[in-house]
Nucleic acid binder design. Structure first.
Lengths: 234, 234
DNA sequence: CGTCGAAGTATTGTCGGCAATATAGAAATT
DNA sequence: AATTTCTATATTGCCGACAATACTTCGACG
């Protein structure tokens, strides 16, 4: 009996083209492939990823919007450095945003938001540290951001969260796991918010993200060494 | 004698398509045309602006990256509210970023950077308040951001500066001029940085941007009333 | 020898079209 | 009548090609 599905069941999940390019370029960026301001033309990206120019263009535009590459007319895309130092800078800005969000959230405590905050926290604790895609962690941070009451701030935090999540997915679970103290750190933030102590909430969030920044920088270091190994093989 | 130039000398400056759409959508957004979560499909935008789908797509993607619209598969683009309140939120985040930049800059004072800072300030003062495109003001803010030493922070500040500049250009000079006290406010920031007083620099920057936020909110109000007038005509 | 200019190449912005997928509406069933 | 299924439409993601523009190389000229 002949199959009812087309002959090529999964050539490409329809809307994966752009994502493939973004992911591939991010991975190369982390491994330091284009270090030194190397330039990549659209045609080269087309050849490298086997997709049309349209998804390549959109991917490059997205990476430009994320501040990871620079697009120059008829000059190709210049890749900005993206190593441990840059990841630290990203985390510094993220900290700036999320610390302010925690501070604002503490000043607007509300029974409903408190309930959702602790619900998100419970989800993390119940997962027992097993959360490959950081789903619950992201939910908690998003909830705190939303509790700030500033939609723009919340949106900006989500943007950074997506970048960081992409980096996490590329690096993999190998060395980028939730450190053990995360639950305590989260609890400290939530307790401060519950008590309406803005300064304490800000300090707790700052400490939490400082830890996360260290983990990320280490992972980026590992990624870089992996990249150089590949270069040795080639 | 036949003209040597093509018959249509300036049909469109080649790379204006995307910009036209971005500008048009931003203007409509400010005037409150799509208030209430209205949806706009790519085909509608094509008809509205007379360009192909490609620049429309890229414009929508850019606006999404700027957090001004939301793109849903096969549902069209939903326009997020963009009035005085949202402009205030934007300025709040901008303030967060630039205040931190000023604070960092004060902690890294350097003869060269100080020279470029005061050079930028002199340009503003010499222009005598006549700076239609805010060129020198932007230069000063960019210079302060760069003086922070955090490239990511500086890049993010530039991103916000571009959004704000776009809003300025759309609103026009009518009600969005440099208020008289700007020179003093700028000088206060620079003096604090020169003395290495991080807290004073942060406070001065905060005060400066608070003034700017008020002006912007007023301008947005005016824009909204203009939009409603047009609606009355129609 | 250095500088300017022009042909040639490379790169990008835009366009129309196609296929896939989601939404909406109609028809049939319970 | 309400719900489900099926069809038709609408909308999007992707593709290949064209034209305009910037860059490069080569040659002519001072």
């Amino acid at each position: 009996m002949p199959s009812l599905t087309p002959l090529t069941p999964n050539p490409r999940p329809r809307s994966a083209g752009k994502h493939i390019v973004v992911r591939g370029l991010l991975a190369g960026l982390l491994k330091g492939e284009w270090v030194g301001g190397a330039r990549l033309t659209e045609a080269e990206a087309v050849e490298k990823f086997g997709v049309s120019r349209t998804p390549v263009r959109e991917a490059l535009l997205e990476l430009q919007g994320l501040g990871l590459i620079e697009l120059r007319r008829n000059c190709g895309a210049v890749f900005l450095p993206f190593g441990p130092d840059q990841l630290r800078e990203i985390y510094d800005v993220r900290s700036l945003l999320e610390v302010e969000a925690a501070r604002l959230a503490a000043g607007r405590v509300d029974a409903d938001t408190l309930r959702s905050l602790f619900a998100a926290f419970t989800m993390i604790r119940e997962s027992g540290g097993i959360d490959p895609d950081w789903k619950h962690d992201r939910t908690l941070h998003r909830t705190i951001a939303a509790a700030s009451g500033n939609h723009r701030l919340s949106s900006e935090i989500s943007r950074y969260g997506e970048v960081i999540q992409s980096v996490r997915e590329i690096v993999g679970e190998q060395s980028y796991g939730i450190h053990e103290t995360t639950a305590d750190e989260h609890l400290a933030i939530l307790e401060a918010i519950r008590q309406g102590d803005a300064d304490a909430a800000a300090a707790a969030m700052k400490a939490h993200l400082s830890q996360a920044s260290d983990s990320a920088a280490k992972a980026a270091d590992l990624m870089r060494s992996l990249g150089s190994e590949e270069q040795v093989e080639a």
